[in-house]
Design a protein around this nucleic acid. Structure first.
Lengths: 142, 142
DNA sequence: CTGTGTGCAAACTCTTTGCATAAGT
DNA sequence: ACTTATGCAAAGAGTTTGCACACAG
């Protein structure tokens, strides 16, 4: 490889990634994982990912895309983001960060991990602990 | 009713509320509004509200509950909260505040309006402005 | 009366599931 | 070979819509 490669995983890397997650590197999983992890952070819906896969000539069903997204999520490769509406969004960046949601385009954009700070959090009710804090900054056109 | 009434709006109050929102105070709307606004802040799903209405002997269809919730939302009487999953939650407290979400019970709990502060918000991308910031603190049992 | 609201059922969207077939190891 | 994954179609939630009837003003 001559070109600088940053967060890019290809071929064998993808297979290793899947094996580590105890998922057989099947043709479909490799294809989907390549789309997801092959080129930086992404935010996808099942339908979007399916459309992309089909467009690159991959034979994969929507049901398999759903199954695969949930498998990846369970394996910690993806995080699911609650936006409302009824579409589920998945984020390839599983580190702690938050999101802009562009209402007009129904699109998510990362907010760098450490820029937002949430203060003044009250104690959770008894016997409960914080699992995760979601901050979604909703944007509309001016 | 003989008992002391606090933040309770009844009968004529509900009608006035609806009229102000330019919604005819029909039997169903009055019934739903009473359940929603008759006794402090609430977080409801369409199905929950429908079940309550039916339980109090009100004849109202689920479709009308959905329609009514959206009318109330458009009128600014309710706010919709994005939790994920595919259920839509509506909050009768439309002021600026945030939520605990109890994952185990799929239930929302208010976090008092001014306790949480979000700092370090980056500038929104050009031509966009912040419409609203949602903070959801997800809780699981210890 | 007149127009708006409601109920019902059907349609729609997104998502999950069951089961026979295909593919990975 | 043995096991797990996939595809398809069908089912399942939650939600929305179209149209005839009912009701508020």
């Amino acid at each position: 490889m001559q070109r600088p490669v940053e967060h890019k995983a290809v071929g064998a890397d993808i297979s290793r990634l899947l094996r580590r997650a105890r998922l057989r590197p099947t043709r479909q999983r490799v294809a989907l994982a390549s789309l997801l992890f092959g080129n930086g952070d992404r935010h996808v819906t099942a339908e979007l990912l399916h459309a992309e896969a089909v467009q690159t000539g991959e034979r994969v069903s929507l049901a398999t895309v759903y199954n695969t997204l949930h498998q990846f999520k369970r394996a910690g490769l993806l995080r699911e983001i609650a936006i409302g509406g009824q579409r589920a969004y998945f984020d390839t960046n599983t580190s702690n960060h938050n999101h802009f949601f562009l209402e007009d385009e129904a699109r998510l954009v990362d907010i760098p991990g450490d820029s937002i700070r949430v203060d003044g959090l009250p104690e959770p009710p008894q016997n409960l602990k914080i699992s995760h804090i979601d901050v979604v900054v909703r944007l509309v056109s001016k």
